[in-house]
Amino acid sequence: MELNALKKMNKGISTAKANRLYWLGRYAERVYLALHLLRKHYDLMIDEDSYAYNDFCYKMGVQNRYVSGEQFITSYLYDTDNPDSIINMLEKVKDNAILLREEIMSETLSYIQMSIFFMKAAKVEGRILSELQTITDFMLAFWGSIDERINNSEIRTIIKFGKFVESSDLHLRFGYPLDRIESINVRLFEALDNNTELCDEINLLAYKNNMVADKYNEPRTLYYLNGLFSA
């Protein structure tokens, strides 16, 4: 194998690329967390509340287009015509990732590719939710590959920015307590490493200002959070 003794690094992040990186992080995290949250609600649906998916849809902020728990699970996982489905989330991850191959590397991209293949096969084979642990494994491998393969810290930062914004967003929506949100914020700010140029300053101040017990679960907090990234 030939080792390249390269004279220089060709580094650069255009606005369009920054946006793709950010959304790559968001969608990838959304897939991972949606599966996680789905498992929790599915557990309730077994013997406690067969309509727990109504609550899931409400919190997730997606249209409740389902008639039964069973139909919800199939459609929400596999239906390519359902804009909110996990398979479509994965397609969105891929849409961004495929445009970033040279930054995230083919190996990283391949976990997304494999997730999509797995989902398509799982739909045909009628697999149940627990078997989608493979997707969770692939997503964890995807995040591992990002840390392992991407040398450019700016690139990593923007993906992580997206990841933690999404994480905080979903945790807020699903009513997690303040300390959980704050621990995600710590990771977000760590990832940014004081690189606040990527942040909208006013939204950042407002978001931080809202991190108190009586305000953090206001809808406005989500608004500030979603306005943090500015490239």
Binding site: N4, L6, N10, K11, G12, S14, R101, E102, M105, S106
Partner: peptide
Amino acid sequence: HSYLAEKAGVLLAYADD
């Protein structure tokens, strides 16, 4: 295009960039 950019260590650019 994307594979060569990755392997050659150069940027993949779009016209707008």
